[in-house]
């Protein structure tokens, strides 16, 4: 048996392992719960909602095929859709960059090797963890109310604040602030990324006389671009899906004057307040396309600004 002689012991065991672990049927048994879920809860319903988006459907009577009517109406004759798009894009384009800039700035300061890093990190992370709760949305509503905490603080500086939640010019910005307040989780990812940057790069740069500022622009930032990209994608998708704070702060209306009518809130209203399930399905597919486009553009643009090391 020349083969057995030539094969080392680990190679033999690897070959046997392949045999034992290589049964299709056995593997699909492990995968079964997930596979059922994929078909029954994801692929099936996704195709179902694509079909429903071409129908009129109120849950009680059978869906009636209406062709592109839902889409035509959304794009040509739906002021609330336009309002929701405006609100959502304003929110995404403000909240995501501000949150990431803040997260990165704090991460850089924390990465200087200060004492008490773990305490600061925990404190900054806590709001991220709690932030999804209804309780926090309630708190926000009270902080930015006419007689809330924020105006109390302003009044000590002699400023007489308005009801920030009740004013259509400001309501959305209180939600942007709420999002920035939850900068902790991207910060932790940035911190982990900063620690991956080899210290000798900075030492070499210092020896060459590069200033701290130059080191930041030439070493830290380029090497961090993959992490920035990752955080930006995750946070953007999350921001598009934001629902709870807007729902609680506006009592489900998206008010005042549609100023907090997040896209998801509008979709919820169409589906579960007015039972226009076909229309809401069309809205859902438009959201999917928007998110997909955003992600695709990000990935294409990444080729020009994200630095990957070989």
């Amino acid at each position: 048996m020349t083969l057995a002689v030539r094969e080392s012991a680990p190679a033999t065991s690897r070959r046997i392992a392949r045999k034992v672990l290589g049964h299709d049927a056995g593997a699909y048994l492990f995968l079964a719960p997930w596979l059922i879920g994929i078909f029954v809860l994801t692929v099936g319903p996704a195709l179902g909602s694509l079909y429903l988006s071409f129908t009129r459907f109120d849950l009680i009577t059978e869906p009636r095929f209406v062709g592109l009517a839902n889409y035509t109406r959304i794009f040509t004759n739906d002021a609330k859709f336009l309002a929701a798009m405006k609100v959502t894009f304003t929110y995404v384009l403000l909240a995501v960059p501000l949150k990431l800039i803040f997260a990165l700035s704090v991460a850089i300061v924390l990465n200087k090797g200060l004492r008490g890093l773990t305490v600061y990190r925990a404190l900054f992370y806590l709001p991220s963890l709690l932030g999804g709760s209804v309780a926090i949305a309630v708190l926000w509503r009270k902080i930015f109310a006419k007689d809330g905490l924020f105006n109390d603080v302003l009044s000590t500086f002699g400023i007489d604040g308005v009801s920030w939640i009740g004013d259509p010019d400001y309501a959305l910005y209180t939600l942007v602030v709420l999002s920035i307040w939850q900068f902790g989780s991207p910060m932790i990812i940035f911190l982990a990324g900063l620690r991956q940057i080899p210290q000798d790069l900075y030492e070499a740069a210092s020896l060459d006389g590069a200033s701290k500022r130059r080191q930041f622009w030439k070493i830290t930032l380029p090497l961090l671009t993959p992490i920035i990209f990752f955080n930006a994608i995750i946070q953007t998708i999350e921001a598009f899906k934001a629902f709870t704070p807007a729902f609680i702060i506006s009592e489900g209306t998206g008010g005042p004057v549609n100023s907090t009518l997040f896209y998801t809130l509008y979709l919820f209203q169409e589906a579960f307040s007015y039972f226009r399930m076909g229309y809401a399905s069309a809205l859902a597919w438009i959201l999917l396309v928007i998110i997909a486009c955003f992600t695709a553009v990000s990935f294409i643009s990444a080729r020009y600004w994200v630095h990957y090391e070989e």
Binding site: T42, G44, P45, T264, A271, M277, A284, L287, I291
Partner: peptide, 16 residues
């Protein structure tokens, strides 16, 4: 599926 917004599956799931 990680990237899929749950809204796309929401209504048929609800019907189910």
């Amino acid at each position: 599926t990680l990237m899929l917004p749950y809204h796309v599956t929401l209504i048929p799931q609800y019907v189910l």
